[in-house]
Design a protein around this nucleic acid. Structure first.
Lengths: 219, 219, 219, 219
DNA sequence: AATGAATGAGGATTCATTCAT
DNA sequence: TATGAATGAATCCTCATTCAT
């Protein structure tokens, strides 16, 4: 993944060595920030601490990131992209689409990435301060809800007259169930996750066709 | 300067007035803190700001509270007690107990108090930093779940073999639905609240007896 | 002069020793700031430098002054008060009031204080950044112009129909002449000062009665 | 990327285009700096801001200017040259030379350029930090005073024994009157300007011959 | 019980300039 | 000539807490 994002100042580069060094540094910064988040919480991510950890002058942070918040946002963007990829792969392996299988597959995909990316868990579930992060994840949730809803509708799983709002609420509720499950442990309470899947499934099945509940084979 | 002259006998009332003053001051501190929370967010609650608002020396705060977090905790404790009272009153007025009526009554009772106590909304739904607060509310949620579960079981609304964990999850999910509904507005998104009630009801009905779904008259 | 001003946070004190230490510190801060101004210019006055010079933690500055600008303002206020006193004394010693004697006496009084207070010279004539200082001196100039105008009018020195605006302009022009004279040297170019006195006198005499030009004995 | 292909002969014009580009860039830099000065004050002129405004790398500024102060100086030099030109033209149109007509013409010429070049007003009247600028303008003022004095003396307007110092002081005082008039408004207080002209005239007339006061026809 | 005074520790960000390429 | 990258050095200010009195 390119480190270039809107919220990062990525200097145009001319020579390969520079580029490489630049990328290294950006990655080092993100890495250190991720560690700090996990070790000391979002509040522990200070420009001083990042700079010290990455062995850089504080001023150099501002070569790569507009400000401190942009570092957290970059972290979140990276992890969200990973979630999208994981969901896509996992959904593609389904042979039967049902409300239950879609919910379970999607939610388990999230859990996989949460395990790989504990820093996301901390930033998102424990420290919702950063407005940019909040808006980014919220927008992503909406987009994801829409996409999943489209898939379900194309497969004839959704009852007539049902709009995407149910999907959005379901995604947000799932998000909060995860928050609950990961609030005290970085691995997430498995029982809570199972129950959460059941809960979201139960809710969405109230808006599903019989086929959506029974399952339709993927063509 | 006091207008008391040396040759007047000033009655030596030391105990009672002190206590009274103490209570006044504590209340003033809480009041100011609540205002600050609503106006400037949890981060806006600084010892300086509280002291200035309550017209007290900063150092005097530490006569009444161990530290800053204790002030927020006191605020939360007060509001939680109010919720318990509201729930008790509202449940007592029910003539028919059902999963739906209990869920709706309880959740609406919360909303009533949220409206009366916007500071709780801000502390709890927007600023989850304070560990003491978190543990307090979590413990309260568990206690409440247990109590409600007992009521429902006594009324024969719960299927055999069901344990209190469902109730706990339901309470926590409800909490997160409220977080969602109150995240952007202090009045709470009414549509989201309605949907949340539906969602929690649907979930709990999967563990209810037919009587629990149909309703049982209160004796 | 008490160091207490609106722009200083002066803590109420209970015991003499505290009070004394407090006053000492305020004075030490002002002293250090004055030295810094003279040595390094207004830009050289940083919170760090003051704190280092006064052997205080930076944070302690904020016990006595609201912010950095308040320190400069305190300095200026102190010096302005000294000017007022000097002017009052020197004018009181005049036996004959004339435009020339009033202008000369007043302007020379300023010069005396400029010599005693080089920090004022630097702050006012070389670094007009600080808005609070600017407004304070400007307001003082207006007040002084009004006062002098009243004295002159009471003595029958001012022609009918002349308003105080001429006095204000004269004061401001005198101020600029001083700026000129002190811009490159802290002692002020004496020739320029003499010429400035002549210039302001010439200007004001165009609004003076014959008595004002010739002089009236002080009763 | 340039659209030039390898097999096209690209004419090897190296000198002229470079020069042209160079001049363009210098002009763009000055233009941006002037805007910044007016919009954000002298303090708002940062190398970053100039570079951003001129769409140049910050480092490239140093190809054309020794340092930041040099940019301001260049701006001032340009504007001062314009003033000289304006004064020359305006004085040339006089048919009668008198102290009054010379003072008025010269001072009004300044005002004209101040209106055309608000950046000069800000740099010179509100931000006297830059030493190079200060020395340049001061030197120019002296030269101008000498020139005007020569003209006046050639025309027999100056009393015997009068030296150029009076002219210099007059110029500097005029400068300070302008500072006063333009301190709060970029258009200058017209009343103050009129009074300033009167003031300078009154002062210089104390050193003028009757012919200088009455006026001498230009040959 | 009350509080004036004091402060250590830390916060984010900006800036002019240099230099290897 | 041109410039991307890098940075040392500063900047002001805030905060929770303690402690002698």
């Amino acid at each position: 993944m390119s480190p270039a994002k809107d919220n990062e100042k990525v200097p145009a580069r001319r020579r390969v060595p520079q580029q490489v060094r630049s990328r290294d540094r950006v990655e080092r910064i993100l890495e250190v920030a991720a560690e700090l988040v996990v070790d000391k919480g979002v509040e522990g991510v200070t420009t001083r601490a990042i700079a010290a950890g990455a062995d850089l002058p504080v001023a150099s942070l501002y070569q790569y990131f507009a400000d401190k918040e942009a570092v957290l946002l970059a972290l979140v963007e990276r992890d969200i992209a990973e979630m999208d990829a994981q969901i896509e792969v996992d959904l593609a392996s389904l042979t039967v689409l049902s409300v239950r299988s879609m919910v379970e597959t999607t939610m388990r995909a999230f859990v996989k990435v949460y395990h790989r990316r504990p820093s996301f868990v901390v930033i998102w579930f424990r420290g919702r301060t950063n407005v940019a992060v909040q808006e980014f994840v919220r927008a992503h949730n909406r987009r994801m809800a829409r996409d999943l809803f489209q898939i379900a509708r194309s497969a004839g799983m959704v009852v007539e007259g049902s709009d995407g709002l149910y999907a959005e609420l379901a995604v947000e509720v799932a998000d909060r169930v995860f928050q609950l499950a990961f609030e005290t442990s970085l691995t997430g309470d498995p029982h809570l996750i199972d129950e959460g899947i059941a809960l979201v499934t139960a809710y969405l099945e109230t808006h599903a066709t019989p086929a959506g509940i029974a399952g339709v084979p993927v063509r």
